[in-house]
Simulated scan of single mutants.
Amino acid sequence: MITVNRFTLSNGLRVVHNHDSATAMVALDILYNVGSRDERPERTGMAHLFEHLMFGGSENVAEFDKALENAGGTNNAWTNSDYTNFYDIVPAHNAETAFWLESDRMKGLAFSDKALEVQRQVVCEEFKQVCLNQPYGDLQHYLNGLAYKEHPYRIPVIGKELSHIENVTQDEVRRFFYDHYAPNNAVISV
């Protein structure tokens, strides 16, 4: 029988835990309750941008990926209309490193101008590649608009317009982070 423990920390972070002694690895999955449905119509693509920005460093760690890789781990993320999900997989003896890295970026993203510019370019190129530079790449934009007239799902996860990400400001980025990337808006599964 599998035992799953569930509890909520004093800061509001919901925790789901299962111990599997058959593996020497630990998987952390942090699900933030934020997606494209939480964006303003005049500034879309923010949740997807943050999927990228969260790897751009925090107050104490310049490069999230490098620190996790140095601990023998790997990671990735995805975003949809409702959630943004980050996961880390590390050897069990380095689980504390993964916990610390995740808590550090949840507590304080670096917000450097360099990280914003790098990730803005990455996301803009992805938008061009997926939506503009292939036949029917913008089909989802039209379908979402037809299927959802008023609902937030009308906004494609990648963003409605390229200019929304091209013109995002550091203040908008900070506001979006502090509105959505907090312990009481997340679930961590271990």
Rank of each mutant, 00 (worst) to 15 (best):
R175D: 15
H19R: 13
E51H: 03
Y153K: 03
A62D: 14
M46F: 12
I155F: 12
T3D: 15
D88W: 08
V4I: 12
F177C: 07
V187Y: 05
Y87G: 05
E42W: 02
V90H: 05
T8Q: 14
E51T: 04
V26G: 03
A98C: 07
F127C: 00
N60C: 11
D179P: 02
E150T: 14
A182F: 06
V190G: 11
W100G: 06
V4Q: 15
A77T: 10
H17P: 01
S103V: 04
P41F: 04
G108H: 11
L53Q: 04
R175T: 14
D82M: 09
D171R: 10
F127H: 00
I165C: 01
D20A: 07
L146E: 15
I165N: 00
H164G: 00
Y136D: 12
N76Y: 10
V130Y: 07
H52I: 12
G45T: 00
Y153R: 04
M1I: 11
N85I: 12
G159E: 00
T169D: 10
M25Y: 10
V122E: 05
M106H: 06
A115T: 13
E102L: 11
A95E: 13
N11Q: 05
P135L: 08
K114Y: 12
L9K: 07
N85A: 13
I2L: 14
E126K: 01
E96G: 15
W100F: 09
L146Q: 15
I30S: 04
M54I: 11
F111L: 13
V118I: 15
L139K: 11
Y32N: 01
N80R: 07
T97D: 08
P91H: 08
F127M: 00
A110L: 12
T23R: 08
C124Y: 00
F99Q: 13
S189M: 12
N70F: 13
P152Q: 01
L101E: 07
Q134E: 10
S21I: 14
D113S: 15
G108Q: 14
A95C: 05
E51R: 03
S163Q: 00
T84D: 04
A186M: 05
R14L: 10
T79P: 05
A110W: 05
